[in-house]
Structure formats: C-alpha cells, structure tokens
Design a protein around this nucleic acid. Structure first.
Lengths: 368, 368
DNA sequence: CAGCGTTTTGAATCCCAGG
DNA sequence: GCCTGGGATTCAAAACGCT
C-alpha cells in the first residue's frame, strides 16, 4: 500500500493508511475540513441476553464482543455524539457521512445527526437477500439494515452521481432500498482457525455503491470503525484515497494485508456515466437566437389548456403573466415549479412536440 | 357503524367510533390498560401547522416562521414523547404499538420509544412498489417508509401470529421488508373536486398485514392519528374493534362514511393458521396410562444410535441416565434440548414411527 | 470431474405455562 | 415474584462429501 500525504492548512493527511487508537482522538488529530466522505459502521449496541440455538441445536455465534457493550442508551448516546462531532469537524463543507446500523442503534444515530446539524439526505435500506432467519418464530426475520446518508449541514452541497447510480440500476433511478447479499463465501475473511475474522464484515458491493454514489475519484474517504477494511479495499479499487481508524491491532493487521492485495481498477472503468447535469446548459434564448423557434410563435402546454407567445429575448408571454418558460408554466399551473422544456410544445409537421427536442438538437450540435 | 362499549374498571371504552379533538387529551380520557394494539401514523412534517407546542407550551406558529432547526426538533420531540406516554398508559400489559414514519421523524420516534421503556421488536420497512420518483435527480428515490413495532415494556409478552404471516408469505417466514404498492386507484379516497382527500392515506394492505400479525379477532385497536380511517376500515373487515382519534372534522366525516360501507369478513375467514404452541399439552405419561405404550417397551432414537426403556411413570431409562423423554434425549445427544416426541421412535407394523403419532392420537380423542 | 445430497453459518435485543 | 422443565423453532448460499 502506498501511503501518501496531502498537506493542508492544518497539517498533513495520512492517506491510505490505518490509524490506531480511539477513533475520536484519532479524528481530532487530523486537520479540520479535510475529508470528502465518512463511512461509519459503529457498534450496534446489541443487547443480547442468553444463548440462542438453531432448531438443529447448534449455537448461533453471536456478536458478544467487548466493543459492542454499553451500559445504557445514555452511554451509547454519549459515545455516538462524541464521534459524530469529531467527524463533522473533519468533513469538508460539501462533505457527507454514511452511517449504518440496525434498530438497536440507528434511531439514536439518526437523532444525534439531526441534533448536531447534519442534514439527512436519505435513509437507505440494505435488504439482505440471505439474512439469518428468526429461529424461534417470535418476530419477523431481521432482513435489513439501515444506512443514513447526511450532508455536513442543511443546504450544503454534496456529491451524488445520479446518472452513475441510474446506470447501475439498468437505467432506472436508484431507489432507497438496495438488495445485496451478506458477506460470505470467498470474500469473507477467515482467521487461522477458519473462523470469521470479524463478526460483522460488510460486503464490498455495499461500499462500492456508496462510494460510486457519493464520491469522485481522488476523494478522501474516512472510516472511523475500519474493522477489516472493506471501506479501504473498495476505496482503493475505485481510485479514492482512504483513511482508516481501528482500535484492535488484529483487525488492522488483517486490513493492511487485505488492502495491499487490492488492485485499483483502470481509469477507464472508473469513469462514471455522466449525468444530464453535466451536460451543457442551454438557455431557451439560444433556441430563439438560432431560429429554431421565432419570436411571436405560439407554444401550447402539455395538457393543451394554456398558450404562450415567444418573445425575442427568449421569454414567454401568456394571458396575464410573463417570464421564463419555467416560470410561466409554473404560474399557469399554479405549481411551485415546472420544467418548461417538457411542458411547452410546438407544432412540427402537423405533430405537437416538446421544445426539449430543440434543446437536444442544440446539444447534439454542440457535441460535434 | 355499530358503536359498542366495553366496560372496564376505569370506565367505558367507545368502541368502533371516532373521537374528536387532541389525541393526547382523548387518550387520557380513556381507561388505562384497555387497548391491545396502537397503530400510529403521526405527522412527520416538522412544520406542523399548529400541532406543535414549544417546551414552554407556547404555540408554534409554523407556516411562515423561520424555523430554527433545534427548536423544531425539540418541539417535535416534546409532542412525540407526550403522545407516546399517553399511548403507553392505554396499552394492556401485553399490548404493542406500531408507528410509521420516514427519515424526517422516525429517528425521533424510535429514540423516544426506547427512552420511554417500550421494547422494539422489529423495524419493518414498507418498500413501495410504485414510489414517487425523485424528480430533481439529487437523491435516491424515496422508495420506502419505516415502521417500528414495539411492546409496552422489555420482556412483555406480545401477540405475533407467526404461522399466519408465514402462510401469507407462501410458507416462508415473513421478513422485515414488505413490498406493497402505495394507495391509489379505487382505494384512494377523493374529495368533491376529485383531489385526494388525504395526503398520506395508507394502503389497506399494509394495515391488513399489521393487524393480522399483531392482533386477534375481538382485540381493541386504537389509532390516535386516524385520518381517513384506514386502520378502522381494516379493523372492521378483520373483526377487530377500533377506536379512532382525529382532530379534523372533515377527515372524521370521510372516515365515518368509509367505514360504514365496510363489511366484516365472515367469521370463518378471519381464522388464521395456528402454531403448534396453541395445541393442548399432552404429558408422555398419558401415553403410558392409556396403554398406547407399555412400561418396559424399548424406544429408539431418531438416528437409531440410542435406546431407552419406558417406565410406569412415563419416564425413560437409558444406559446411564433417566428422566423425561426430552431430558434423556438431550443428554444422550449432548444437546442443550431435545423434543422427545419427535426424537423417540417405536415399532408399529414393522415400521419405525415417532411417538408423536400417539400424542396426535390422544389430541384427536380430546377433540371429540 | 460432474452431480447431488448433507452440513454449516450469518449484527439476534428469539418461550412460557405451571408450580 | 422466581424457578423448573416441556418442547417448539430456520432460510439462503456456500462448503463439504459421497458416488
């Protein structure tokens, strides 16, 4: 693994390495506003009572590790708010955070995020295709976990590769529920005895989707509960820089070895489908300027109920209102907003077609 | 709609009717420990248009106010904790609550539930098969809502018709993620102008699954945010009694009319698959008493590796252990537990059959 | 090796009636 | 309340093992 540093105003950033020790202290040792994305898989605070056996009498290997033990919700909240505060300081103004959890802890995390001024963008449900069943038949199969995606503050800009996710989802807008298998098979790391190296290793596919959605190549991704380093492995594959923090030396060692074997995807496959947002912006005035439509021509609304006349400056005039194609459409419809490109239509060859056709024509011309 | 009352120690219960006014006051007017299930679809818009009071009880004038974020969460929490407390008082000791919400409010609700001593049993994700797309392409399609299912307190018994839900799911235990379409089409209530009568009408299919899972016929279901009465309509169909609380007269009126048209399913179709736990217990001693097996006869284990001899009191003796059919089986297998009924076999007509066959025979006789 | 049946395992707040 | 003990309870995928 090549460790590089990025110098910032406040100090150097230990890129592509794993810090040891308490995650709050480690985060506080790093310069403020230096990280693009934080992915956090904190302890869930499972409050398991006795043993649980499967119907065949085998014992379920539960998460009873010391790091998941808290005395009370209050203790868990204190811990949560402390690390979330340190995380918030680290984020660049346009940075974002993802936190994963279950019903045991996610409500505490979500409330803390909101209280501390983070702005929730989505909650995303990981629907497990192969969850552990409920063995006693007393509840529903616990078949999902919840991730919260939040920007650093209300109104902050954030990275979202909409079109890339849409492409990942076969051309349909990506939903807030993702179906992915749990991590097992060859991907699941084992110790010398052949037992799982970490009780809660996350699948790389999950991190892949998160990082493709919410970062760009070259971004810095921090994981304060690094574990066996899934975040780092996927970040490296995707050409993102990572910083891991992990308390347990055993996990750090496994993660180091794991990530050193990872090879970065080639640059071409990292290029992500470009969204319409990245396409050149075309003012309606250009349509008029180019003579694709002429001042004085009449447009009709999608529903045929409204008409407006084009003016030379690319604005529209309707019965008692005037303004941009979007503004006039919105006012006529009594709607808060309106996409004028698809709302307004004109006649061509006896057909009624949206003016967006003309924008596409312009963009095609701009490409060549 | 036939309104009946159930008298309790503390007063009468206005069954199958809709109470007006503030839900907290209305709940406090009802007798404690009188309700089996509460289904709540609270407002989640943080600009609550007068529903909210600040901690000092001053009314929040929302719409045009610039809302300080902290103030708004605090006010929402105050409101949430107040109605949850009133709800908890109403629940019978073995009662339970379901609350539905989105990421705007569900973390507040979940934390409040935990803080007030409710015990979360599952979070259930309603995955919408036909969600509203995200028009701006800035986030993931908000394709789900979250329900929290909680018992009144830790360790409390609760109703869960496991087998019925498993049957609903084609023989596989029901998961925590439910795929259901949003409410539209003929089910969606419209006003005179043809607009939707209520902004967040829930699909009856959702309530159907909740009530089948968590109540039995004759149970009392309370909905403190009744709206257009989906909970009441489904409760009536399913032969449960309901109590609705709704402050808006217009919604009450629509709900009354809606529910009056609903017909209860016939009693037979309300019956639901029962688990084996519901069957009467039969001590193995009865098998011996009735002469279906005799003292001295030998039983063999399921895997054929172990043998035991029956004693007159219905206990077994094996090589170096004695006790109940379950205890001896468990010890011989070195297992934490063992179902002796399916473990031990005897010979009949040249076949090796489990002694459970004899229990079934006794149960059949008990029926007639 | 292919094919097929058996065993293993995964973030789990997992029983309850009767004495 | 507490303690005892009967006896009910699992899905999907990978790994393993046998023919």
């Amino acid at each position: 693994m090549t460790t590089k540093t990025k110098s910032t105003g406040a100090g150097a950033l230990p890129l592509n390495s794993i810090l040891s020790g308490d995650c709050i202290e480690a985060m506080n040792s790093l310069p403020a506003a230096s990280v693009d994305l934080i992915f956090a898989d904190p302890p869930y605070n499972l409050q398991l009572k006795g043993d649980l056996h499967r119907p065949n009498n085998s014992l379920v290997d539960a998460v009873d590790d010391h790091w998941d033990q808290f005395d009370s919700f209050k203790a868990y909240d204190t811990f949560t708010r402390a690390w979330l505060k340190a995380a918030q300081r680290l984020l660049k103004p346009h940075g974002a955070i993802w936190v994963i959890g279950s019903y045991h802890n996610i409500f505490r995390v979500g409330s803390a995020l909101q209280d501390q001024g983070y702005w929730i963008l989505n909650d995303v449900v990981w629907r497990k295709s192969n969850p552990m069943p409920n063995f006693r038949g007393k509840r529903f199969t616990n078949a999902h976990e919840t991730m919260i995606w939040a920007s650093k503050s209300e109104g902050a800009k954030y990275t979202f590769n909409y079109e890339a996710l849409k492409a990942l989802n076969e051309g349909i807008q990506m939903r807030s529920d993702w179906v992915l298998p749990i991590c097992n098979g060859g991907e699941r790391l084992k110790d010398e005895k052949g037992d799982k190296a970490h009780p809660t290793q996350k699948p790389e596919a999950l991190l892949h989707r998160v990082l493709v959605a919410a970062t760009n190549p070259g971004d810095v991704v921090l994981d304060p509960f690094f574990g066996t380093g899934t975040t780092g492995a996927v970040a490296k594959k995707l050409g993102r820089d990572f910083i891991g923090i992990e308390r347990e030396a055993a996990y750090r060692e496994i993660a180091e070895k794991r990530i050193s074997k990872v090879r970065r995807f080639d640059r071409a496959s990292l290029e992500v489908t470009q969204g319409k947002r990245a396409e050149p912006r075309v003012p309606f005035g250009q349509v008029v300027e180019r003579g694709l439509l002429s001042p004085g021509e009449e447009l009709t609304s999608l529903n045929g109920r409204h008409r407006a006349r084009i003016r030379a400056d690319g604005t529209l005039v309707a019965l008692d209102t005037k303004g941009s194609i979007h503004q006039v459409g919105a006012r006529l419809e009594g709607a808060p907003s309106c996409n004028g490109w698809t709302y307004w239509h004109f006649r061509r060859d006896g057909q009624t077609v949206p003016i967006d056709l003309l924008r596409q024509q312009i963009r095609a011309e701009m490409q060549s």
